[in-house]
Amino acid sequence: MQGGTRKKFVQLARCANTLMAFDITLRMFRYRPGQAAHFETYAVTVPDAANVLDAIEQVWDKHDRDLMFRHACHHASCGTCAVRVNGREVLPCIAPVKNYLDGAKALTIEPLRNFSMVGDLLVDVAPLLQRQETAGLVITRPVENHLDGKPIASAQGLDPESVETVPFNRFEDCIECGICLSACPTMAASTKFFGPAGLAALKSQLDKTTDPTERARLLDLADDEQGVWRCHSAWECTETCPQNVRPAEAIMALRQAILARKFGFGK
């Protein structure tokens, strides 16, 4: 092959290769109890359409079987894999590697903040789950006639009468991934705060019940030094939430409900 043709061929091959796969570097947070935490760098090759979780799995697959991380569904419905990529909270299962590639082609992967660390990317999410349980959050809403604040009948073109009688199951928006607790500056300073996810769960439960005893219990939990009043309106929870739960809005709505109860106006 002549020099010029060969050069062109190599360029073409390189071009095709970049369409197929990336060579990237992962700076991974590594930690074991009793040992010093540190970063370790791994070179991996991932397909063009890879998400960050694919890259993490490559590290586990090709470099270090001791890597501790969590995942299950790979499509943002289980909420187990949340980590920080380049300092920001994401679900790596739906975060394209491409979005993070700058000139350096390196990604820094760290565990969520504001939880106790177990090892590597693994944190203890028990405090989050305990709060959700206290709020009484269930996985599905048993009967629902409204979706995003609009009656389902009008949104779906159904007969309102029939919708009233048909039980409609809907999954809760919150997937208990812990991202909002990691992004919340108040949570960063104090572990006593009930936290954005927990307060959003309280609001969600409040909307579902008309039982005065249960409503009073939920509002008592929210109306506390460490409840809705501890929030200082950074709105980082709503900004980072991958599921549109909008915890900050839930906190503001709970404040209305608490003030309404206290001063006897509204509902």
Binding site: D220, L221, D223, D224, E225
Partner: peptide, 8 residues
């Protein structure tokens, strides 16, 4: 947490 303590 003390749910009885009202906070204004």
């Amino acid at each position: 947490m003390n749910p009885k303590r009202s906070t204004l």
